[in-house]
Design a protein around this nucleic acid. Structure first.
Ligand code: MN
Ligand code: MN
Ligand code: ZN
Ligand code: ZN
Lengths: 141, 141
DNA sequence: ATGCAAATGCAAGGCGTTTGCAAGTAAGTT
DNA sequence: AACTTACTTGCAAACGCCTTGCATTTGCAT
């Protein structure tokens, strides 16, 4: 197959073969505004790009996650979502009024991390923070 | 069955029948230091208290959650953990080594909340913070 | 072009959780 | 205490998301 796009170099650099499926998945992830599930990827690929097996989607995503190309988040509905890793430390504000998502780069974890190390000998390697509230347009009356 | 403990009143107040299993589950949750899985509860009940079916454990926990007696947290290993709701503001440490979950009452959100209000006029109503890392026993060498 | 390791499709299985149904039980009524 | 009824439970089957074993196909180094 020779529809390989510009992702070929990234794949090579990470020691992966450049295949149609992998390029298509990276493209879809890049085009997606929000994190998406494996099945959403699978359906979108099937409809727009090329037949693919769901297990291939999972295997590909797993590899991308292990290479730190993709971030996997387990949500409360039991489905994992995947997004490209842009190597920024960011968090999201979810407006419970209009469902808008706002990205912020603020992070309040710094001091807590040290205090956890001292108090209970827990070495923090990462964290997940989601903030809920009302955006400017949806402020309570 | 008449091993009903002091939880009878709580159950009544919430409109639930007081049964052996429900009392036992509440007791176990109260005795547990950290949030535990349904299966851990199930095994502990089977060994120490009384035979019970795993589906009964799940059904009971679901009801407790719906009555706000219990807090359910979905973790990255795909298993939900349950703990008594003490109506405190708390967060969870998830050990990526042994998958133990530790509850903490520290919260670093205070200042960020005010700064978000000032900077982008966002009114925070809630947040979810999960912290990943290595517990005392799993520290890297 | 050839050869081999890596990637894929397919079907089956794993695992945590849920559900339908029949039997059992709590607790109010008589 | 016996009756009544709705709630609770055990059991087995099924669910949904995800993983895995194996035969086949493919990328890519030589
Ligand atoms: Mn952060
Ligand atoms: Mn908090
Ligand atoms: Zn809004
Ligand atoms: Zn640990």
């Amino acid at each position: 197959m020779e529809e390989n796009t510009n992702y070929t170099e990234i794949l090579k650099r990470e020691g992966m073969k450049s295949t149609k499926h992998r390029n298509a998945i990276l493209l879809l992830l890049e085009q997606s505004e929000d994190p998406i599930t494996a099945e959403e990827l699978y359906i979108s690929l099937k409809e727009n790009t090329a037949l693919i097996n769901l297990s291939t989607v999972y295997r590909t995503l797993d590899i991308f996650v292990s290479k730190n190309l993709v971030i996997k988040s387990t949500m409360d509905d039991g489905k994992a979502r995947y997004e490209l890793n842009h190597h920024e430390h960011k968090h999201h504000l979810f407006c419970v009024g209009c469902h808008k998502v706002i990205s912020i780069e603020d992070c309040p974890m710094g001091e807590l991390q040290e205090s956890l190390k001292k108090k209970i000998d827990f070495d923090v390697t990462g964290h997940k923070l989601e903030i809920y509230g009302y955006c400017h347009n949806c402020k309570k009356v």
